[in-house]
Design a protein around this nucleic acid. Structure first.
Lengths: 340, 340
DNA sequence: CTGAAAGCGCTTACAG
DNA sequence: CTGAAAGCGCTTACAG
C-alpha cells in the first residue's frame, strides 16, 4: 500500500504552509489565485483527497445523512417493500444532488434502533422511513427529539405528533379512490389493510374510504375491513379470509399495492375475474402496478417529490431553519382493475 | 443543543483516566471488570457515543463500505433497475450483519466517478454494481486497482480482468434456459439484449444460448438478436423491431426480465398470445416476474447469496486476505410463459 | 491493570 | 494574502 498523501505533503511540494493548502483546496477567497492553482494542480497530481474524518472532526459536521429503514418484523427477511426501495433510490439521488453522502441502514423495530448515527458523529441528520407499529415507534421519536437529534420522518401526519413528518395525504387518497369506485357504479366494498392506531397510514386511508362511502349514503360493513400488512402474502391471506366470510363485494380497496397484488393472485386461484366479478384497487403505484393483469388502478405516491422534500427539509433542520410537517397529495391512476 | 459528552467527561465522573474510558468502552481485556462496568454505566447514562470521526482518524479505518451503483445513462432518471435495487437491499443487510455501515451512491458513468470514497477515508472499501458500457468501465477499474483501492465488483467474469469480480454464471444461465426452451419443443429463437463486449453479461447469456441451439443442430439467426438495455421501454422497442423485420420465432429469450416485461407489453398490444403464439423467457427473477400474466419463466439470480459473498469478500480484501473472483449459478424458474 | 503523552489530518481563530 | 499554533476527540504505544 502506498501511503496516502496529506496536506503537508502538498504544502511541502508547493512551498507554502499547510494552512494555505487547506484554504486553497476549499476555494477560500483568502488565497491568491496563483497559489490556489498551484496547490490544486499538485493535489490532483498526487491524487490527494481531503481526509473526511479529520475534516469532520475538526469542523464538527459530516456532510452525510443517514436513512433508517424500518421494516415490519413479520415481513419476509429477503424482501423489502418495493415502495420503500423506490423511496430509497430517490432519497439517494436527492442527497447526492444536495451534496450529502447517504448512509443506509435497515432497522428492526424490535431492537434498540435509535442507532446513534448522529450521536456518533456519523451523520448530521436522520431520515426515518418505514411502516411498523406506530405505537412502539412514537416513544423512540420522543427520545430522538429530546436528544435534539435532527430528523425527519416519512409517514402519517397527526396533530401533536413528535418531530417533523412528511407523508402522503392518506385520508384524501382513500377518499378519492373510493369516489372513483363509486363513480364506476360499485356499491359494496371491502378494505384490506390494518385500520387502527398501530398503522396510522392505512387507518387514514380507511377513514377516507369510509367517509366517501357514507357521503353517498352507502353503508360501510365493518366485517369487510380485514387486517393486512403490506406484503403479497398478507394480501393473499386477507383476500381468502374475505372470501370465506362474506359475499363478494363490488369492489375491494387495498391499503397498498402489495396487498392488492396478493389479493389478485388469490382471486386468480379461485377463478374470480377482476374487474368483471370484483373491482380491485391499490395504493402507492409501485412499479408492478402497471404490469399485473389486469393493470392495477391505484393512488400514486410521488416518491421523487417526497424524497426531495425530506432531504431538503432535513438539511434546513440541520442548519437550524424552521420547517413544518407537510402533506403530499396522492394522484389517482386509473387503469383496468376497477372498470365495470 | 446540549453539548455532547466526550470520553473526558466520562473519565472525570468515573474518576479514571480518559485512556481507561476508551479501553473500557471497547471491551479491552486490559481493564478491570469493576472499572469497565462503572464506565459503561456512566456512558449509557450520559448517552455517550464514541465519536466516529475521531476514532476513525486515529485508528485509520472507518468501519464503512461504499456501494457505487452505476446506471445506464440512457435509463429513465426516476427509475432504478429493480434487480439492482434488490441487490442494494441485500447488500445493506449483509454489511450490517458484518458490522459495517453502508454508504450508497449512484454514479453516472459519464462522470468522473471514482468518487474517492476510500481516498477520502470515508470507506474502507468499495462495492461496484451496475450495468453500463463495459468498455468505458474497464479503464476506471484499472485506475482503482493502481491506487490499491479495495474493491469488489458484481458483473461479468473474464480472464485477465482487472480486480475481483463476482457474478452470475451468465453463459450457463443462457445455455440452461435455451435447453429448457428446446425441451419445450421450440425450434426457432430470438434474443433481445445487447450482445457485444459493451455489455458482457448479456453477451455471455447470448453465447450460452447460441451454444445450446447449435448443439441440437438448430440454427441461430443473427438477425434475430436485437440490442436492448435492461429497461421496459427498450424491451418494448426491441420486440416491435423483431415483429417488423422477421416472422415470429417459436421462443424469445430476453437478456433480462425488464426486457421481457417490455416485450410482453408489446405482444399484448399486438394481440399476440404468450405462450400460445410465442414463448417468452427472462433473466434475473425480479419480483415482477411472478406477477405478470402469464407468469415469466426466468433464470433466477440469487441476490442474497451474491450480496453476502460480495460483502464478505470485500472485508477479507480489506484485511489483506487473498480472495478470488467467482461465479454464482443461476437457477431455472419455470413458470407459464414458455410452455407449449 | 492504569495513566500521561503523542498524534491521526485536518480547520480555524489569531497575528502579521 | 499567508503562516504558526491550537485543538477537534479519540486510540495506542510507552512506562509503571
Amino acid at each position: 500500500m502506498k501511503t496516502k498523501a496529506t496536506s503537508l505533503d502538498i504544502a511541502y511540494q508547493a512551498g507554502v504552509s499547510q494552512s494555505t493548502v487547506s484554504r486553497a483546496l476549499r476555494n477560500s477567497p483568502l488565497v491568491n489565485e496563483e497559489t490556489r492553482k498551484k496547490v490544486q494542480a499538485l493535489a490532483k497530481e498526487l491524487n490527494y483527497k481531503v481526509d473526511k474524518n479529520a475534516s469532520n472532526l475538526r469542523s464538527q459536521h459530516t456532510g452525510t445523512l443517514a436513512l433508517l429503514l424500518f421494516e415490519d418484523p413479520t415481513s419476509d427477511d429477503s424482501m423489502i417493500n418495493p415502495f420503500f426501495l423506490s423511496m430509497l433510490g430517490c432519497i439517494t439521488r436527492a442527497a447526492a444532488k444536495n451534496g450529502y453522502d447517504l448512509l443506509v441502514s435497515f432497522q428492526q423495530l424490535s431492537e434498540d434502533w435509535h442507532a446513534d448515527y448522529e450521536d456518533a458523529s456519523k451523520a448530521d441528520g436522520l431520515i426515518l422511513l418505514g411502516y411498523g407499529d406506530y405505537v412502539d415507534y412514537e416513544a423512540k421519536l420522543k427520545q430522538l427529539s429530546e436528544q435534539e437529534t435532527h430528523f425527519v420522518r416519512y409517514g402519517s401526519i397527526e396533530k401533536g405528533q413528535t418531530g417533523i413528518s412528511f407523508g402522503c395525504d392518506n385520508f384524501k387518497g382513500g377518499y378519492d379512490m373510493t369516489q372513483h369506485l363509486i363513480k364506476q357504479g360499485h356499491k359494496s366494498f371491502a378494505f384490506l389493510g390494518g385500520a387502527d392506531e398501530h398503522c396510522p397510514e392505512f387507518f387514514e386511508r380507511y377513514k377516507g374510504h369510509c367517509q366517501a362511502v357514507k357521503e353517498v349514503n352507502l353503508t360501510v360493513n365493518p366485517n369487510n375491513q380485514i387486517d393486512a400488512i403490506s406484503t403479497e402474502g398478507s394480501g393473499y391471506a386477507a383476500a381468502n379470509q374475505l372470501l370465506a366470510q362474506s359475499e363478494l363485494p363490488d369492489a375491494i380497496f387495498c391499503a397498498s399495492d402489495m396487498i392488492a397484488v396478493g389479493a389478485l393472485t388469490a382471486f386468480q386461484d379461485k377463478k374470480i375475474k377482476v374487474p368483471e366479478q370484483v373491482a380491485l384497487a391499490g395504493f402507492d403505484d409501485i412499479s408492478v402496478a402497471h404490469l399485473t393483469s389486469p393493470k392495477l388502478t391505484t393512488m400514486q405516491q410521488n416518491t421523487k417529490l417526497a424524497a426531495d422534500i425530506l432531504v431538503e427539509s432535513l438539511i434546513k433542520k440541520i442548519h437550524n431553519q424552521e420547517i413544518d410537517s407537510g402533506l403530499i397529495p396522492a394522484k389517482l391512476i386509473v387503469r383496468e382493475s376497477c372498470s365495470r
